[in-house]
């Protein structure tokens, strides 16, 4: 099967899956809660107020009708209006998502660099000091709860030592750069606002590290395993016996082939980043989509929650699709 066929098939499948995702989200928000109005207004609101709210939110219509109208709305890009902020949910997502994206990308960059470096270093120096260190570092990364690591780092580096800035994306007294892409770093680069750039980057360090820690661990682990596999191959022995420098053998011959599994794991960890973002954003008061959804859940703001969850699932599926395509491109055996 050629690559184009594969991509078309996967795209069709993704449309189907997204329809299912919409169904799940709709069921969660409309069928499972016994009494959304009661949850919204408190148990003993007068019946007239309850009826009025039902009408206002469209809850007096039959379920099927509500589903169809929500579906049509989503297709038109209308995700409803948030109870809490009183703005269209899509507007809110546009406002909050860039912050999440900035954090996730920073975490990815950090974890890819650190993870590949650790993985290669520990494979090359197998069973030596650095290998043991990397192993402990990795296993701690997947064991420590994200929110706890975040709190501890805040306590140490912000409250006690005061060498890194605290929660939020910028210091309060700093005027944020003009909003162009929604990413503080890119916007301040574009507007040449160096002070905001520096401050924004400093604010990114802790949350990006916390968020990227477990991803770093899994990338390091996969890179180490696949590097060890490749280093055993005969062409590496050939390269070495030609008298090639070990550094060149590692970088030019081994690493290239060893990185194929790493690409997949980077894609897969992006999903765990979205998951971790919910917790990291809560700890660091980061105004992103994860915190938007969490706050929505706590006050049962259903339109916001449905829209936000749908959007995250969409991004997650899209990233997985892209990873699959890259993988199919790198390795023809995967095109089935």
């Amino acid at each position: 099967m050629n690559l184009l066929n594969f991509i078309v098939r996967r795209l069709l499948l993704m449309v189907l899956v997204l329809f299912g995702v919409l169904c799940i989200v709709f069921i969660i928000a409309n069928v499972i809660p016994a009494d959304p109005i009661g949850a919204l207004l408190g148990g003993n609101a007068p019946p007239e107020v309850v009826d009025e709210y039902k009408k206002k939110l469209g809850l007096d219509k039959p379920l099927a009708e509500r589903f169809v109208s929500y579906l049509l709305g989503v297709l038109r890009g209308d995700l409803g209006v948030s109870f809490r902020t009183n703005r269209p949910v899509l507007e809110d997502i546009k406002k909050f998502f860039p912050a999440t994206m900035e954090l996730a990308i920073a975490a990815t960059i950090l974890s890819v660099i650190l993870g590949i470096w650790l993985g290669v270093a520990s494979a090359v120096n197998r069973n030596k000091g650095i290998d043991h260190f990397a192993r402990v570092f990795s296993i701690l990364g997947v064991s420590m709860p994200v929110f706890w690591t975040g709190l501890l780092l805040l306590l140490i580096f912000y409250y006690k030592l005061d060498i890194l800035p605290g929660p939020g994306r910028l210091d309060i007294f700093l005027t944020p750069p003009k909003r162009i892409t929604g990413s503080i770093v890119i916007d301040s680069l574009l507007t040449g606002n160096w002070e905001a750039l520096k401050n924004g980057l400093l604010h990114l360090i802790m949350p990006a590290f916390v968020l990227g820690y477990s991803a770093t661990a899994s990338i390091a682990r996969i890179t180490r395993a696949s590097m060890l596999d490749v280093l055993r191959q005969e062409y590496i022995t050939t390269a070495r016996s030609k008298g090639l420098e070990e550094r060149k053998v590692v970088r030019n011959h081994a690493l290239r082939n060893a990185l194929i599994p790493t690409v997949t794991i980077i894609g897969l960890t992006f999903g765990s980043l979205l998951e971790g973002a919910v917790l990291t954003e809560t700890v660091f008061s980061w105004p992103g989509l994860g915190r938007y959804i969490t706050n929505g859940y706590l006050v049962l703001d259903y339109p916001a929650v449905m829209g936000g969850t749908l959007y995250i699932a969409f991004i997650y599926s899209l990233v997985n699709l892209i990873v699959d395509i890259i993988y199919a491109f790198l390795d023809p055996r995967m095109r089935v």
């Binding site: 969660i28 499972i32 969850t309």
Partner: peptide, 18 residues
């Protein structure tokens, strides 16, 4: 596949909250 299209914690949050 549909259940796998969500990041785990996000879906668990949705069920737990509902």
């Amino acid at each position: 596949d549909m259940f796998l299209a969500f990041p785990g914690l996000v879906l668990a949050m949705a069920f737990a909250a509902a």
